[in-house]
Design a protein around this nucleic acid. Structure first.
Length: 260
DNA sequence: ATGCCTTGTCGCACAAGA
């Protein structure tokens, strides 16, 4: 079973590109971020024609997440618990029946947090605290649980082509990195780094200044696997070639395969 | 040093992204 995450930077602007990738990669489940659409505006029928069931948690203009799946989920939860006043659409979770224990998939779009010294960075850290608490609760279920998405965190210097350029950025702050480590240390396996310590592995290249052509990238899209899922990990991939397509997102798909 | 692009918006410039 192939499960992927991809920040598509606008579902309407990325419709043809995302349909092309789905046709090529055929993931069983994909978590999408930055759909930048309300639920009613999401072009669900185009994805349904490819065989995908569509669950969205949208918002006008910004943010917005979705889960597409070949099998229909048995349960869907929208929004990250812990702050009823938070109106930003950044989390969606779906549960799938398997022959063994349930598969619980959380798709997240973690706040960017820039610029530093503003309430945006505070919001990022508070959101990470809420994610930590929710992840802990989900792990206690002892299901095949995984958290995929755009974490907006560069975990380590090796995860940036030019780490010095990010020292004043929310994505690479000690607080952001510490919170990410604390999340992983709840008991997750970070899929990419479980399989490779190679430098030059990125999931995002800025649109500006020829970042893709120079391979000036960062690795900020991650897949965290609970033990019940990581025990079944068979392969990990980053579809970097998609960044070179016409009308690309600035992020590319990251995926895992599990033996289920 | 800043902006470099891209997207969406009650567009005709701006916010937000990272």
């Amino acid at each position: 079973m192939k499960i992927a995450t991809w920040n598509i930077n606008g579902v309407k602007a990325r419709l043809e590109t995302s349909l092309s990738w789905l046709s090529e990669a055929r993931p069983d489940i994909v978590c999408l971020q930055e759909i930048k659409s309300v639920d009613e505006g999401f072009p669900a029928s185009a994805f349904e024609e490819l065989g995908y069931h569509v669950e969205t948690h949208g918002q006008k203009g910004f943010n917005g997440v979705a889960i597409l799946s070949l099998e229909k989920p048995v349960d869907v939860n929208r929004g990250l618990p812990g702050d009823p006043s938070d109106e930003q659409a950044r989390y969606i979770e779906a549960v799938f029946e398997t022959s063994a224990s349930p598969l619980r998939v959380g798709g997240l779009y973690l706040p960017n947090g820039n610029p530093l010294g503003t309430e945006k960075f505070d919001y990022k850290l508070r959101w990470m605290d809420r994610l930590h608490a929710h992840a802990r609760a989900c792990l206690a279920r002892e299901e095949r649980f995984m958290l995929l998405g755009d974490y907006n965190v560069i975990p380590d210097p090796v995860d940036a082509r030019n780490p010095a350029a990010w020292t004043q950025d929310a994505l690479f702050q000690p607080e952001s990195r510490q919170a990410f480590r604390a999340l992983v240390n709840l008991g997750f396996t970070e899929a990419v780094r479980a399989t490779s310590d190679m430098p030059g592995v990125y999931s995002f290249w800025d649109y500006q200044a020829g970042a893709w052509q120079k391979n000036n990238g960062i690795r900020i899209d991650h897949i965290l696997l609970a033990p019940e899922a990581s025990d079944r990990l068979t392969s990990v991939g980053i579809d970097a070639h998609v960044r070179g397509w016409e009308k690309p997102s600035d992020h590319v798909p990251v995926w895992v395969e599990l033996s289920v």
